[in-house]
Amino acid sequence: MTNSELNRLKDKAFQVFGIFCTFIGLVVLAIFLIDIVVEGAKRLDWDFLTSLPSRRASKAGIMTAWVGTLWILVLTTLIALPLGVAAGVYLEEYGKKGRWANFLEINIANLAGVPSIIYGLLGLEIFVRQMRLGSSLLAGALTLSLLILPIIIVTTREAIKAVPRSIRDGSYALGASKWQTVWNQVLPASFGSILTGIILALSRAVGETAPLIVIGALAYVPFTPSSPLDEFTVLPIQIFNWTSRPQEAFLTNAAAAIIVLLLLTFLLNGIAVYLRNRQQRKVKW
């Protein structure tokens, strides 16, 4: 066998190995999804979505859980979006480059890596106890905002950095101030990327359970929350709760709730992918 034939064989072997590795992950995920769907699909109907939780598995629904999740989603967006984008813009456009900026930068990157349970403890101390918000939606949203803030800041900075210098120069040269340049040129040009980052961060927040449990979100809430200060539950907690029950029927309920939760995250990720693609198509510098 010549050297080049050997090389080609090695190449082929690696390809096969690569395909194998790729499939391991996909197959496991597929098995899991199929299992869940088979288990939960029969339980998933309109009643399930509109019923309040109950001690009897056949009567229990996820109304309070998904409404709670939506509340959390909206509140977290409203809190984290302006804060994160503003902080990102400040750090990228206004902040003087220096030791202080480096220090901030490293810490924000570190914050993004802090385990979510720690944020839960932080939220419990500050929002629930100090600010006396109790185990309310607002406290939960604030806690999750803290959790995703570093991600939003970092994405915003990256998105802003990707706006070419020439656009800023063009704006400055026409007599625009820094703020006018940021508001009229930089943010619109980078908004797609920023939004993508935010949605991905939110889809992470939607799946978070630990911090919300720590701040005292309840599993059993017999009413849908109607103000940010109400107590609440969310889908992951409901699922967690049901899976820990001994009865078989509750496991089926959990599977159905998982389908809903997965659909929600897939939807968010789908929107993010769509926005990113549109952004890439639209902008060619």
Binding site: P164, S166, I167, D169, G170, S171, A173, Q185, P188, A189, K282, V283
Partner: peptide, 10 residues
Amino acid sequence: MVFQKPNPFP
């Protein structure tokens, strides 16, 4: 001012 590379705003 006009720059080296055309830089119209998007």
